[in-house]
Design a protein around this nucleic acid. Sequence first.
DNA 1: TTGAAAGCGCTAACAA
DNA 2: TTGTTAGCGCTTTCAA
Lengths: 342, 342
Amino acid sequence: MVRVRMADVAARAGVSTATVSMVLNGVNSTRISPQTQQRVREAAEAVGYKPNSVARSLRTQQTRMVGLISDTIASTPFAGRMLAGANDVAREQGHLVVLVDTERDAEAERQALHALNGQQVDAVIYACMWHRVVEVPPGLPEDAVLLDCAPAGGGRAAVVPDERAGGRVAVRELVAAGHRRIAFLDAEERFELVASRLRYEGYLEVLAEAGIEPDPALHVRAEPVAGGGRDAARRLLDLPERPTAMFCFNDRMAMGAYAAAHHCGLSVPRDLSIVGYDDQQLVAAELDPPLTTIALPHYEMGRWAMEVALGLRQADPEVPHLMPCPLIRRASVSPPPTQFGD
Amino acid sequence: MVRVRMADVAARAGVSTATVSMVLNGVNSTRISPQTQQRVREAAEAVGYKPNSVARSLRTQQTRMVGLISDTIASTPFAGRMLAGANDVAREQGHLVVLVDTERDAEAERQALHALNGQQVDAVIYACMWHRVVEVPPGLPEDAVLLDCAPAGGGRAAVVPDERAGGRVAVRELVAAGHRRIAFLDAEERFELVASRLRYEGYLEVLAEAGIEPDPALHVRAEPVAGGGRDAARRLLDLPERPTAMFCFNDRMAMGAYAAAHHCGLSVPRDLSIVGYDDQQLVAAELDPPLTTIALPHYEMGRWAMEVALGLRQADPEVPHLMPCPLIRRASVSPPPTQFGD
DNA sequence: TTGAAAGCGCTAACAA
DNA sequence: TTGTTAGCGCTTTCAA
């Protein structure tokens, strides 16, 4: 397994390395005679030539690698889809992605930036695994793209989910089914989720557009996990005038809401309609009945970020790009039960 | 933002680039006077020198990058932990990981291998997101490490979960609680999951060691998702002599088993004990009661693979390394209900 | 104790 | 139409 260099190809084809370089890279190829080109290609094939990207990078000052710094890739099921989106675009463009996981540690971020800078990556993407507002780490290149997070100070290309529109879509689905008493099972404020406020705003907007007076009793908060959703849903179901539908901050809370409904002898969706958020495969699709929910566009955001990073697409650095969150219609929504007195 | 080269540091310190190189890399540093070293360091600091890894790589023939080819990073919640493990070791060793996702497409694999080879990565890891036996792709370097898969022909360093031992641990937990009628909710054979056979073998071994005659009626198969688990569990609960415990192929099937139990008015774990497999955070920990399960050691396997790849650890290429699957004890196991006639 | 110089493998002016 | 040559920024032998 000896490494074969361009000089070996040149020698075999009886030309200079310059000619080999031009032929193989298709540069100035009109200026080189077809028979020479042919000869070069055959020689390259014969000796099994593979270009050395490191040498090329040193010469051209571009590496065809892009660095992707993520705050924590380990602990979320969404990371994969984001990476996949970024990766697909990179591959289409003949680029490779260098991944660094920093666990949100400032020192690790600094090191990662150094390393990527040293490796002369052509672009950098800074990704978060939960939508949030971040302080841009010092040393992050000016043209870095932020993925699933927005810079506290603005001024950077960034892409985040359009949570407010997602909230609207979710609640409209419920309104369209005929619901008027729609609860919002929100995350507690201490988690400082930017999605929480935005989804709530979407909820309020749709109530307003449907002429429904928001009832503060129907906006409850809990820990955004199944247990929290269960407790919140129970409180709601104990209300004198219980809601006929629940919009949950996420699918895990929705899972808890299912449990609460069963506990109260209620059937989903006949007695209670539920819409989640996130479209977590392992939860939403596996619930019984399958959960209608709003998907987070991680794959698309990953693609978008890579496209901007590689200059395939322009981004307005002043305002984060809002990626639509599509409704995934499954089986947890139906018209409200008919009430006496209606 | 002009790039500063080693020559700039040399000029400022009034030495040659050779000296700068030696000082900054700590090579032959005993041979260079302390005051010169000091001067070099100050100069480097003053001009903000950052070494160019590309140039260094060209010269030294090593890039401090390792390629990680994964079959599909997008669609599994486990990928992250594997990547995290590999990444942590890489970082500890001053290496970077270059990630390529091939979606299990042979052509994409070929391209990826080319690209990584061109970038002169120091090592490559070939990772699967589900434990399986694979045909090693042509062109995979001899010293590549296989992660969560074993080579069909053998002969490569590889690491996989110890599924059989995991099955044993799961069933022993049930036996220790006093169960004798223990069902195994297995995946259907058409999915060709190597884990299926191994976990079943573990199950049988423990029955044997406990002197329990395996009842074929208690080994049922279904699609390894919640719906499949629910159906399989219902069939089991309809048996004249129903099992008091179920070991499920995975957490999703266990989720279905919970549903079936509720449906039959049975309480977990009072009337029915359940153990899962995988420790999927979003499922196992969120179930009510939380599910006792066996964890897949993805983080550890990721670490192991990277350690071998970087030569920190020796591997026997003849037999895949078996990584233990720990029991995660939660609340879905208790002694069997007291029976009349006992 | 330090410096000169020769490349690593490739690209791209400039010459021929 | 093709070849010569000068680097890209760094490491490392050898000489001083």
